[in-house]
Design a protein around this nucleic acid. Sequence first.
DNA 1: TCTTGATTTGACCAACTGGTCAAACCAACG
DNA 2: CGTTGGTTTGACCAGTTGGTCAAATCAAGA
Lengths: 200, 200
Amino acid sequence: MEKPQTRIQQRNQAAILSAGLNIFSQYGFRGSTLDQIAEAAGLSKPNLLYYFPSKEAIHSALLARLLDTWLDPLKAMDETGDPITEIMGYAQRKLALSRDYPRESRLFANEVLQGAPHIAEVLATDLKILVDEKAAIIRAWSEAGKVADVDPHHLIFSIWAMTQHYADFDVQVRAVLGDREPYDGASVFLDALYQRLLQP
Amino acid sequence: MEKPQTRIQQRNQAAILSAGLNIFSQYGFRGSTLDQIAEAAGLSKPNLLYYFPSKEAIHSALLARLLDTWLDPLKAMDETGDPITEIMGYAQRKLALSRDYPRESRLFANEVLQGAPHIAEVLATDLKILVDEKAAIIRAWSEAGKVADVDPHHLIFSIWAMTQHYADFDVQVRAVLGDREPYDGASVFLDALYQRLLQP
DNA sequence: TCTTGATTTGACCAACTGGTCAAACCAACG
DNA sequence: CGTTGGTTTGACCAGTTGGTCAAATCAAGA
């Protein structure tokens, strides 16, 4: 289905998406301008619109690419593995995502903050289905006495909240920590937190 | 120092701040327009600018009002109280703030997401000082064996993250939960989480 | 080299942006 | 009732916004 791409197309589309990610993740959709993105991508505005038909199109492409990878860590949580290891592994993978892809995290945060106008449906269908499925697994684990009996949905929310916080509120975290690096301490803390919470 | 205010001034300024809170908290500073705010406030744009000299002024007024009350729950954490009760009380107060003032929470989230251009200094001074002070108290508690030995800064971050998540990602939380109410479950979960984490 | 299709751009547009201003309006007090 | 000072507005402005288009430029295969 993909059309063949010239090298120039690949390079410019990549540059536009990267620039768009920088801008959109900082200012949100409405707060970002094509001129900003074009300049960040090193292209003229008409040239940018030669590769993407509209501002919306760039944003949609970014969101689509994001959602694909964003849910992977949760999908990877394995029913047959050791429960506590699986949950803690998920939390650590999600934290690594915040550390390595903070812009994507902020893009997502901006979208949801603004009421998720572009992805409300995905949240209510795909995401909900995935979460309900994994929540059922966790529930089964607690009923088998393998992890503590806590609400699985709120457990998952807590992992999202804690990990995304380090990407989305990066400025605040760093302002408070001074020059200490955030992620090492976060990783240790997460470990202790869920170790203690989940022990049956 | 306050100038005397007519009833009309009070009503209109309040209307503008309320409308501004609605708009800014959803679209961020750059994504919001004076026309939107004016319409939401039921005023014409020139009339709005009769009460506030600029878009910035409305935003600043909101942020100032917010910061005042936003830090109160942390300030109220009492060195002389029972450690675990104090920390869990703080978490619950912060959660109540998210439930009762979600727009304020999102206004703050938008500001920090965009790099905190208007409040970077407050974060690096007032906030840092307050957090360092409370972190020292928590550290003393753990050294006295009254609470578990966890990094106090990351403990505080975790409370911020978990409570703000329910306001800032409200759309996502509700999409996943379906028609279940979020805050009751959140309160119970928070309680279990910190009870288990903090027990020495 | 020449041609063809991909790429790039300057000029342009209508709608919208934050903000101004003089004139009109209105409430209340003497 | 008339005046005075607070209030409201229509018309307006310069700069910015997302987007268009024809013409110019370029890359690469025949």
